[in-house]
């Protein structure tokens, strides 16, 4: 029962009131209680009064239980779900600006096709690639592009939804 359980990644999704300060309450809870945030995503839902926050955190089972309880305790958190297992889909997105020298242009385009990514901007010496997928796919793509010289990268956090038909939110 003691805390020897191993720490794992968890994707927590919550619906919150779309009001000023709500994100700060959520983030402040994590920093104030020493919880960890791997990534964070937030945007309005179909209902403009409600936002969806998705947080990826590292925790063992008792800590995860505490994180979930603390989040539920916030007045502005309407609903919270753990979307870490196969019953949900998870995606992130990246914009990657990679050096495109004549000798590796073909290789870049091949990778873009393989990963079902897109080149969305072309300059004389670099391509900007838009890619999305789960965490492993993004890691793999970045790993393969790295040797060609990644100039800049912008990544989102994870967003997630339950597969249908399933339990709400």
């Amino acid at each position: 029962m003691k805390r020897i359980m191993k720490s794992e990644k968890h994707t927590l999704t919550m619906l919150v009131d779309n009001e000023p300060g709500v994100l700060s309450r959520v983030v402040g809870l994590f920093s104030g209680r020493g919880f960890n945030i791997d990534s964070l995503c937030v945007a309005e839902t179909m209902d403009p009064k409600v936002s969806r926050i998705t947080i990826v955190t590292q925790a063992n089972q008792p800590l995860l239980e505490q994180i979930e309880k603390q989040l539920r305790k916030l007045i502005n958190v309407i609903k919270l779900r753990d979307m870490s297992d196969d019953s949900s889909v998870r995606r992130e997105m990246a914009l990657i600006c990679v050096q495109a020298r004549p000798e590796n242009r073909d290789e870049i385009l091949r990778l873009v096709n393989l990963f079902r990514a897109k080149v969305i901007d072309v300059a004389s010496n670099c391509y900007t690639i838009e890619a999305s997928g789960d965490e492993d796919k993004m890691k793999a793509l970045i790993g393969l592009l790295r040797p060609m010289g990644i100039k800049k990268i912008a990544r989102t956090g994870t967003v997630a939804l339950f597969r249908e038909p399933k339990r709400g939110i």
Binding site: P62, E65, Q66
Partner: peptide, 11 residues
Amino acid sequence: IDPTSIRKNIP
């Protein structure tokens, strides 16, 4: 009454 109090420090 507060679920966060339970199992926070003591199993």
